[in-house]
């Protein structure tokens, strides 16, 4: 079982990193032929930095759009972030002080995650418009994330896991050694689902994570009169 999970994690990591790298390279290399920031837009690079930061930190556009989606989406994403940071303790020795410090918050954050996911999922059933646009994969993605969150919380609140052994396992993986992984069901479910998430990340709508950084309507500077913008393929037309 330990070997199986070790191989699974090597594979999942490879897919995640290579897949994302390829996608990011594709986005970065694809030219934006025209200036299309959604205006009013910042007129300087610094302004764009703040605009992007507000999108990333506060989900500004979503807040303007729909308070319920914003609330549930925000709870989920912030919860996920804190939980992920909390998990850094499995990969660092000694554990960084601020990771120690956020440990208790991570527990609450897991509840925020679950509430957020449940709210988002409920909307896919209850709101006619969103029911209409939902594909099976949209439901399965939420099921997957909920499965990860709940199996993780099971280990904390119901069926305690030997987290020291788990840490030894992951630190070992980072040094290309395969150590013994505990075999409680919640742990195996949790780790299996996380590996699955990592694998589908680069081939699913989770690409919104890198995509947001490359969205021309958000990341372009509003200065077309001052500075001529020309894509390489468009410059060819001028020859």
């Amino acid at each position: 079982m330990s070997t199986l999970y070790a191989l699974l994690y090597y594979f999942a990591t490879l897919v995640l990193v290579a897949g994302l790298a390829l996608k990011i390279r594709q986005y970065a290399k694809t030219p934006a032929p025209l200036k299309i920031p959604t205006t009013p837009a910042p007129t300087t690079g610094g302004g764009v930095f703040w605009r992007m930061l507000r999108e990333l930190v506060f989900f500004e556009s979503l807040f303007k759009s729909n308070k319920w989606i914003w609330l549930f989406g925000y709870l989920f994403h912030v919860g996920l972030l804190i939980v992920l940071l909390r998990h850094l303790r499995y990969f660092t020795q000694p554990v960084w002080f601020w990771v120690e410090w956020i440990q208790p918050f991570g527990v609450y954050a897991s509840f925020a995650m679950v509430i957020g996911l449940a709210g988002l999922w409920a909307r896919r059933f209850l709101v006619e418009r969103i029911r209409y646009i939902s594909s099976p994969s949209d439901h399965l993605m939420l099921a997957l994330l909920l499965g990860i969150a709940i199996s993780g919380m099971m280990m904390k609140f119901v069926d305690g896991t030997d987290i020291v052994a788990v840490k030894v396992f992951f630190l070992g993986l980072m040094r290309f050694q395969i150590n013994e992984l505990p075999t409680q069901t919640p742990l195996l479910v949790h780790l299996g689902l996380v590996a699955l998430l990592m694998i589908i990340f680069p081939i699913s709508k989770l690409l919104h994570a890198p995509g947001v950084f490359f969205s021309p309507t958000r990341n372009q500077v509003d200065n077309p009169r001052e500075k001529r913008h020309l894509a390489a393929w468009a410059a060819e037309l001028e020859r």
Partner: peptide, 18 residues
């Protein structure tokens, strides 16, 4: 391949409904 917006927007939608 010629328009980043088109490529990114085809990939990035999560069907949030906003």
């Amino acid at each position: 391949s010629k328009n980043r917006a088109f490529q990114v927007y085809l990939d990035a939608c999560v069907k949030c409904g906003a």
